[in-house]
Design a protein around this nucleic acid. Structure first.
Lengths: 116, 116
DNA sequence: AAAAGTGGTAACCTAAAAGTAACCTTATGG
DNA sequence: CCATAAGGTTACTTTTAGGTTACCACTTTT
């Protein structure tokens, strides 16, 4: 373990802060599959409210992990997508999941899965 | 990005929860250098209070990342150390720091560093 | 005898995050 | 002309993490 973990504003803490929020990892997961509209994300992240989803999307956008594109069509239409930075995070998240499988155990065998 | 991020109780979220807490990463960092007594950690984690340090140590212990050994010597003496599980986490934290350096930038050049 | 160090606990407070429910705007369909 | 849908916003309440201060039990030092 190197010195990099010891700074007053620690890079690990700073990075974790990017996806710190009850639902952010799940939102990133949903978007990693496919760009999605607001309502599609809402349905795929179980039990999140519109308000909190809006907040977390805004934060993810501010941190540069996702993009928001508004299409002025007939009905309002907003598409969210991972940015390149957001995509670069995915392998890291997979490493984290891999650590859990290896050292803690399988990710809760037989639990409910989210729809794609 | 694989399915593993999509479970209702997501392994990534579960893993992050292990070191989610204002000071946990820093505590792990301190202990990664050397086993330490309560008071030694207190001094090395800037501005943490006894209460919060106690809480976070208890949680880290409950999660199996650190061990607590009480020596009934003359004055009370308690040693905290990383467990094997705790040690296994260090490379992961380093990966997270490395991601930040690569995609966000250097870990705040010239900032104050913690004493060892 | 008093003070100081060690590793805490107890009672209390506060700010921020998250949750709930109602409402808004523009547009279309019936 | 009313209802519905999308993508929110507003106002309010609840929950939680973290912080502050005081105190404790025990032992050694002065």
């Amino acid at each position: 373990m190197e010195n990099e973990l010891g700074h007053a504003d620690c890079p690990v803490t700073a990075t974790i802060a990017l996806f710190d929020g009850r639902w952010k990892v799940m939102i990133l997961y949903v978007l990693s599959k496919k760009s999605r509209r607001f309502g599609e994300i809402l349905v795929r992240v179980p039990s999140i409210s519109k308000k909190v989803l809006t907040e977390q999307l805004r934060e993810l956008e501010a941190d540069g992990l996702i993009s928001r594109k508004q299409y002025r069509e007939t009905s309002p239409r907003v598409e969210y997508a991972l940015t390149d930075l957001g995509k670069s995070l995915c392998p890291l998240l997979i490493d984290i999941a891999a650590w859990k499988r290896k050292y803690i155990g399988s990710p809760n065998q037989g639990e409910t899965k989210l729809p794609d």
